[in-house]
Design a binder for these strands. Structure first.
Lengths: 210, 210
DNA sequence: AGTAAATTGGGGTAATCACCTGAGTGCTGA
DNA sequence: TCAGCACTCAGGTGATTACCCCAATTTACT
């Protein structure tokens, strides 16, 4: 048998912490050598223990999981990292991707899948849940949209007609028309209806203020 | 001081169970007299202990929280009930509302809020989290839409034009037009764009298969 | 049987959309 | 300096939508 994989868990929600540890123990092959409920403790613990893998919640008091990772890397800690995040907003996931975090999971992911991912990352691999991967692909596509195009998309989502959108953005109706045409071409749809469905599904537009 | 409020907790996820109990203990005034990780145990426990309040997860092996409640009521158990559900689909919430469950919360709700709700329900009140209430209002509105109108809404969401939708549903374009107009009037919007945004935001249409 | 609601569909009009070609400006990196 | 891109706008055409009118038929329920 391999020696046990040493793991540090950090999550400000005690219940998630306990649940994950229990699942990992049930699976075997790992040893949870440290637990933290805030970013600061997590960071010092990771520095001190140099675990094979640190599993971090993203929203923690003191420092987010991402901040912990970046800081730990500045100290050349050899650990690998898995981030578990509750809110899978495109922006957050993009940041994690840029930071080249080895493993990313949503909290809604089945615990078994997360456990498997942690082991994989600890073994030197990468593990990104399908849900996260899907969102990232959407982000990829959103990044191909220009600022102005996103603004036009937002305006349309608010129910503005081309005319109203042109007034809102202070440009000609024809310009709005051009942008919308380009949006539909870029997203591969042929109607405003599909455009909005795609945009909302992929989180390209902000629905909260509508 | 009042005597301690006697509570039974049931959740197949041990971590949620522990987290909630911890939070309740921290708040004080309550005593968790029973824990169950499946519907069957929960039911027998409630019958045996007649707690002031039973807090039930909706998705449990054996029997769902709702089934437990309905069965417990058949036995005239005097307990009051709080349901905590992970998936807040409109259908599920509507069923809970119909069953007149005293308290309904999403798992994403802050623990403090859930605790406060449990105490309120145990005291004879009702507690429905704002998020749930909002979804229910949307359901209310969706129920005012006829079957055909919902079908037309789905068709539009799939990006079908009036013509394509008419062919898909085997009716005249003019009928689609009528339905669409009625939809917009009922939902208080004046454009297809707004119609879709409203529909998606409120879960009136199924986005998964688009 | 009778009333209400749902579903169907026709006519018509003004507005808007979808899509095209073309073009001027300004910024940026090679 | 020059190509490339983003942004801007125009003209034009056919399709479609938004919205109003009205009415026949079916379904549901009292």
């Amino acid at each position: 048998m391999d020696p046990l994989v040493r793991i540090v868990l950090a999550d400000d929600h005690p219940l998630s912490l306990a649940g994950l540890e229990e699942a990992l123990n049930a699976r075997g092959g790992v040893k949870v050598v440290g637990r933290a409920t805030n970013g600061i403790d997590a960071l010092s613990m990771i520095k001190r223990l140099s675990p094979d893998c640190a599993v971090l919640d993203l929203s923690m008091p003191g420092a987010t999981g991402l901040e912990v990772i970046l800081e730990a890397r500045r100290w050349s800690v050899p650990s690998r990292f898995v981030v578990v995040t509750g809110t899978g907003t495109p922006q957050v996931l993009q940041e994690l991707k840029n930071a080249e975090v080895s493993g990313v999971f949503l909290k809604s992911t089945p615990v078994d899948e997360i456990c498997a991912g942690i082991l994989k990352v600890a073994a030197g691999g990468t593990a990104v849940s399908p849900a996260v991967r899907k969102i990232l692909e959407a982000v990829e596509q959103a990044n191909n949209l220009t600022t102005r195009e996103l603004q036009v998309l937002q305006a349309i989502a608010r129910g503005l007609t081309n005319r109203a959108a042109s007034q809102a953005l202070g440009i000609s109706i024809k310009t709005i028309d051009t942008h919308r045409t380009n949006l539909m071409r870029k997203l591969g749809v042929r109607s405003t209806a599909s455009l909005l469905v795609r945009a909302m599904r992929d989180g390209l537009i902000d629905v909260s203020d509508i």
